[in-house]
Simulated assay, not measured.
Amino acid sequence: MRADARRNRDLIVETAREVFREHGYNASLDLVAKRAGVGAGTLYRHFPSREDLVNAVMQGWVDRVEEATEKVLAFEGPPRELLERWLVTYAELISLHKGGPAKITAAMVQPDSPIAPKCRVLLEATERVCERLHAEGVLREGITAADVNRLVGGVATVADGADQPISEVEPLLLVLADGLVAAPA
């Protein structure tokens, strides 16, 4: 790819990230092109469909997921606190863009979704956290990573719909943690 074409592509992705954060993943692609200072033809030459653009935007998100997962798994405190940290981190990760919680949560159970491969990274991250918590006897028997993702996705979707930051629904995530923790023997 020529250097100028690469700059345009990178500019479109960064602008789309900002527009999606403000208006959600269904924001006008014309708005993305206008803010990026490129024509619609240039945008569509690089990204023939909305899904292609969303996928490019989400690559940065995947990198964030991997970094956040490593940070949470490096935590050496009480397992219950690790669970709480993951629930909040997870909710924050899926809430970076308006409409993100619902779109990402739905994509995890829709294998034909164009963003499903990116969302699997988050499912795998939750699986790693759950494996550790199950090994430490913290999670209830039978709780899966998919269960955790759907539950946190529901709380984050409600917050997103009400334009609330995750910090305002953190108490709900702590209640969720109560329900995920195994009863003492």
Score class of each variant (00 low, 15 high):
133 L>D: 06
67 E>K: 14
41 G>F: 00
85 R>P: 02
66 E>L: 13
39 G>D: 05
55 N>S: 11
58 M>C: 06
84 E>Q: 14
161 G>R: 06
90 Y>M: 11
39 G>R: 07
77 G>M: 04
131 E>L: 10
143 I>Q: 03
61 W>T: 10
17 R>V: 15
98 K>E: 07
41 G>E: 00
138 V>D: 01
79 P>N: 04
76 E>W: 05
53 L>Y: 03
78 P>K: 15
54 V>I: 13
177 A>Y: 02
3 A>N: 04
61 W>D: 03
151 L>G: 05
13 V>W: 00
88 V>I: 13
164 Q>C: 11
99 G>R: 05
102 A>G: 06
59 Q>E: 13
139 L>G: 05
21 R>N: 08
54 V>M: 07
36 A>Y: 02
36 A>T: 08
39 G>L: 06
160 D>C: 10
25 Y>L: 11
40 A>N: 08
179 G>R: 02
63 D>I: 12
127 E>V: 15
141 E>T: 15
103 K>D: 04
70 E>W: 12
24 G>K: 04
176 L>Y: 00
59 Q>I: 15
136 E>L: 13
145 A>G: 08
40 A>M: 11
21 R>K: 13
138 V>Y: 02
48 P>M: 13
144 T>Q: 03
81 E>K: 10
64 R>L: 12
125 A>I: 15
26 N>K: 13
168 E>I: 14
105 T>V: 14
142 G>E: 09
157 T>D: 05
24 G>E: 01
151 L>P: 01
89 T>H: 02
19 V>A: 05
166 I>R: 05
114 P>F: 10
163 D>S: 13
132 R>L: 15
66 E>N: 10
70 E>L: 14
49 S>Q: 10
60 G>D: 11
81 E>R: 15
50 R>N: 05
15 T>N: 04
140 R>W: 07
7 R>E: 00
30 D>T: 14
161 G>Y: 01
127 E>P: 04
109 V>G: 00
148 V>E: 00
59 Q>N: 13
142 G>C: 09
81 E>S: 12
93 L>V: 06
113 S>D: 11
126 T>P: 02
41 G>D: 00
108 M>R: 07
64 R>S: 10
63 D>N: 13
136 E>N: 08
15 T>Y: 03
31 L>R: 14
143 I>L: 07
96 L>R: 14
123 L>N: 04
58 M>W: 01
107 A>S: 04
33 A>G: 06
176 L>A: 02
43 L>C: 12
30 D>M: 11
72 V>S: 05
57 V>F: 01
106 A>S: 09
119 C>I: 14
64 R>G: 09
96 L>V: 11
27 A>I: 06
2 R>S: 07
13 V>I: 12
104 I>T: 06
58 M>Y: 03
75 F>P: 03
175 V>R: 13
39 G>A: 09
71 K>M: 14
158 V>C: 01
78 P>R: 14
19 V>H: 02
25 Y>Q: 02
29 L>W: 06
12 I>F: 01
130 C>G: 11
61 W>N: 05
172 L>Y: 07
29 L>K: 08
68 A>V: 10
159 A>H: 04
167 S>P: 03
